[in-house]
Amino acid sequence: MLMFLRIVCQICFLYLFALVGNMLSGWFHLPVSGSIIGLFIILGLLHFKVLKLSAVEAGASFLMSEMLLFFIPSAVAIIQYKDEILRHGSQFLVVILLSTITVMTVTGVVAQFSIHKLAKHKGETVK
């Protein structure tokens, strides 16, 4: 029960920073979303030891482990686009499929290659 309350409080705390981020983003007409701004604020507070890791860790871990849940309502939104999906669905799918495979392959290969290159350069092994 205590853990539950702790997680709820920490989620509210994280939410607060997302809202602050939203406000800043609105005031200064920043193109970045509020949650990314909130992320950097929390990161700064942790870095300068204003905030202890234990003050946000439980809530953050909970949110991250259940993150797929938060995508589900937007995925259900697909039923609003019946016409578009019927007309262009297979084209959308081909683009997304091929592009995702390309992006993942290139990113993975470039990362792996540069890790090995760096390891050789420094004469050490990277795990």
């Binding site: 939410y15 949650s35 909130g38 991250m64």
Partner: peptide, 19 residues
């Protein structure tokens, strides 16, 4: 559903922890 989608915001803020 919006209430659940909105939780994506604190989740993104929470990525500060692993970083």
């Amino acid at each position: 559903g919006r209430w659940l989608s909105n939780l994506l915001q604190p989740a993104v803020v929470g990525f500060a922890v692993p970083l």
